[in-house]
Write a protein that binds this DNA or RNA. Structure first.
Lengths: 248, 248
DNA sequence: GCAAAAGTGTTTAGTTTACACCCATGC
DNA sequence: GCATGGGTGTAAACTAAACACTTTTGC
């Protein structure tokens, strides 16, 4: 086999001993790690995201995602849950890792690599627990600028949400347990920023057959009330399709 | 607005000063960060991945992905490119971040969080540069166990590849610039682990209209030679579709 | 009774699948 | 001349899209 003539200078890492790695791990090569949470909600027929005012002078007046440094004894997912719990009081929430952002100068305090999660919560079901730093909900479509690289992080998370919501039953996480088909359609329209045909939408979801008619109606609506449904996760798990097809 | 009665004990982080964050960033809260590369190739009609023997006694005899610690002054993408370049000599390679793995005890040297990238390279075009630690290609389908959590990382990367290859023109990165339709189909069949109809496959790709007939034929094949094509990335960029549809 | 949204089917267009025969080359 | 894979078209099944009127409720 042909052996390249190119230099071997950078192969050192391949023959490191455990103790050498250990000393690197323990000393020079450590980096601050944070978790940032993009917390999506749905209200007033709009997709919302939870923001606070940045603490830092450099970003004075700018809004920021919720995040914190990861403790070295803490799992990444746990850090994300902790941040979410602190701010929303919610525990059992849909959450997904998006991407890790590590630009050298993304944080003014030095090198901080951040692992980003997004989560989907049902706004109606809860009130925010701690309103420090003006914690509150913002329309995703109206956000122009955020502290740090958080606008880029939000855009990336939102794009991932748009992709995933078309292939997985995520929309239900943004709604109460009981919801009308109109509400469900509104979630899709808000996330994907499109209009859909009402009849075709209903047909599609009934055909999938994991909405359960709970025999209740909307209350206090100024028009004919709609039926309410539950999402049956077990039925979904059994029926979900293995999608194959080349399409781009 | 209703103010929750729940404890405020964990809100401390929201009012940290920059200097407080700075001292955390500089000291106690740092974590070793590595990058691992899942390097896919295609040969003998099989999807391959590049592995080395693990350096560590604990994993003696086990194969491992290629990775290294991230230098605090180095971008994550650069670290991934560096690892790839060291081992394959290749520069200009398709590469995508997959996910970050951070289980507390995934690495015997201590807490090491790892950012995983996969890349797609054309095996035919090159020979491996450095063969230390028995660096070589393995059939993805035959890998049973790897050092660290690398089997889990490989599975996750492979699943992501399977999803992405159906929606983006990645397959071309695994082939030489000139390829036959049969080779292209073989890539899809290997990645997705399915058989496809030859006529429908051809129809589909010709309809997409970004394969360029370069008016050359296969050489030295023991049967009727096929035409060779290029992938025209510009044409793809213009034509690619914005895909909408709920399907799960 | 009027405003507002719920509920409901059918037709058409487009896409995906299944399927079989002749052709060009190397040996 | 035979083995091997290249190259091609059509019909059937399925899926997605377009589209309008009647019903129920609150006011």
């Amino acid at each position: 086999m042909h052996m390249s003539k190119s230099s071997h200078t950078s192969q050192a890492q391949t023959i490191k001993s455990l103790s050498a790695i250990q000393s690197e791990v323990e000393s020079i090569n450590r980096i601050a790690l944070s978790v940032d949470c993009v917390i999506f909600g749905f209200d007033e027929n709009k997709l919302k995201v939870l923001l606070i005012r940045s603490d830092l002078k450099k970003f004075q007046g700018k809004w920021s995602l919720l995040g914190d440094l990861v403790d070295p004894r803490e799992e990444l997912d746990e850090a994300a849950s902790r941040i979410l719990k602190q701010r929303t009081g919610l525990d059992d929430v849909y959450m997904e890792q998006v991407k890790t952002f590590g630009s050298l100068h993304r944080h003014p305090a030095g090198r901080v690599v951040t692992v980003v999660y997004y989560s989907l919560i049902n706004i109606q079901n809860h009130k925010l627990k701690i309103l420090d730093n003006e914690l509150h909900w913002h329309d995703v479509s109206e956000i122009e600028d955020l502290a740090f690289d958080h606008k880029q992080i939000l855009d990336c998370s939102y794009e991932q949400l748009q992709r995933r919501v078309q292939e997985h039953p995520l929309a239900f996480s943004l709604l109460p347990k009981k919801f009308s088909l109109r509400e469900l359609q509104n979630v899709y329209e808000a996330i994907l920023n499109i209009k859909m045909d009402r009849r075709n939408f209903r047909k599609k979801f009934f055909a999938m057959d994991f909405l359960v008619d709970i025999d209740e109606m909307e209350q206090d609506v100024p028009h004919r009330p709609g039926k309410l449904y539950n999402f049956n996760y077990n039925k979904y798990e059994k029926k979900k399709k293995k999608w194959v097809g080349i399409d781009f």
